[in-house]
Simulated scan of single mutants.
Amino acid sequence: MKYTTEITVNLPLDEFIKKLDNPEHMKHWQEGLQEYQLLSDRPNAEGAQMSLKYKMGKREFEMVETIIKSNLPHELHTTYDTKGIHNIQKNYFKDVEGKTLWISESEFQFSGLGMKLIGFLMPGAFKKQSMKYLKDFKAFAENGTSVLNPQ
């Protein structure tokens, strides 16, 4: 399953990247994130990995992020792996008149009958979650609004 989401954030590209590229900020725009752990000595380098633990409702899961291409401030490509799902994220950042356009290309590859079925029956849920992360980042970056303290 492949799709693209995009959003314009009212920040210059350099400020946008400073907020996006700081793992301490993730908890403010990735709802359900419980903790992260850097698994590499050079956290922003290609090949670097980070473990991410989430809780959504009663469901807890862990995934590993791997940076496959880092060309900041213009692009950042990563993979996310968890049981039954391999997610490839290609993120592009463009300066548009002092604002930042974030274009995110998502590709989900499912393994196992259960995950393949969920991917087939609920593609909208994946797109909706991707867009929620973009909107929550925008709210955090522009206004300091955190998913930890909903208003």
Rank of each mutant, 00 (worst) to 15 (best):
Met1Tyr: 02
Met1Arg: 04
Thr4Ala: 11
Thr4Tyr: 04
Thr8Met: 07
Leu11Tyr: 02
Pro12Thr: 05
Leu13Gly: 06
Glu15Ser: 09
Lys18Ser: 03
Lys18Asn: 09
Lys19Asn: 11
Asp21Phe: 00
Pro23Ser: 13
Pro23Gln: 14
Met26Ile: 06
Met26Gly: 02
Lys27Tyr: 04
Lys27Leu: 02
His28Asn: 14
His28Met: 02
Glu31His: 08
Leu33Glu: 11
Gln34Glu: 15
Gln34Tyr: 06
Gln34Gly: 11
Tyr36Ser: 07
Leu39Asn: 11
Leu39His: 09
Asp41Thr: 08
Glu46Pro: 01
Gly47Cys: 07
Gly47Leu: 06
Gln49Phe: 05
Met50Ile: 06
Ser51Asn: 15
Leu52Cys: 08
Tyr54Gly: 05
Lys58Ser: 15
Glu60Ala: 11
Lys69Cys: 10
Ser70Tyr: 03
Asn71Trp: 01
Leu72Ser: 03
Pro73Cys: 07
Glu75His: 04
Leu76Ser: 03
Tyr80Asp: 10
Asp81Gln: 14
Thr82Glu: 14
Gly84Gln: 07
Ile85Thr: 07
His86Asn: 15
His86Leu: 14
Asn87Val: 11
Lys90Asn: 11
Tyr92Thr: 12
Tyr92Lys: 15
Phe93Gln: 07
Phe93Ala: 07
Phe93Leu: 08
Phe93Val: 01
Val96Gly: 06
Val96Pro: 01
Val96Thr: 14
Lys99Cys: 10
Ile103Cys: 08
Ile103Tyr: 10
Ser104Asp: 14
Ser104Ala: 15
Ser106Val: 00
Glu107Cys: 05
Glu107Phe: 01
Phe110Leu: 12
Lys116Asn: 09
Leu117Lys: 06
Ile118Asp: 12
Pro123Leu: 09
Gly124Lys: 00
Ala125Thr: 11
Phe126Trp: 05
Lys127Thr: 06
Gln129Leu: 02
Ser130Glu: 12
Met131Trp: 02
Lys135Trp: 03
Phe137Cys: 10
Lys138Trp: 00
Ala141Gly: 01
Ser146Arg: 00
Val147Thr: 12
Leu148Asp: 10
Pro150Arg: 09
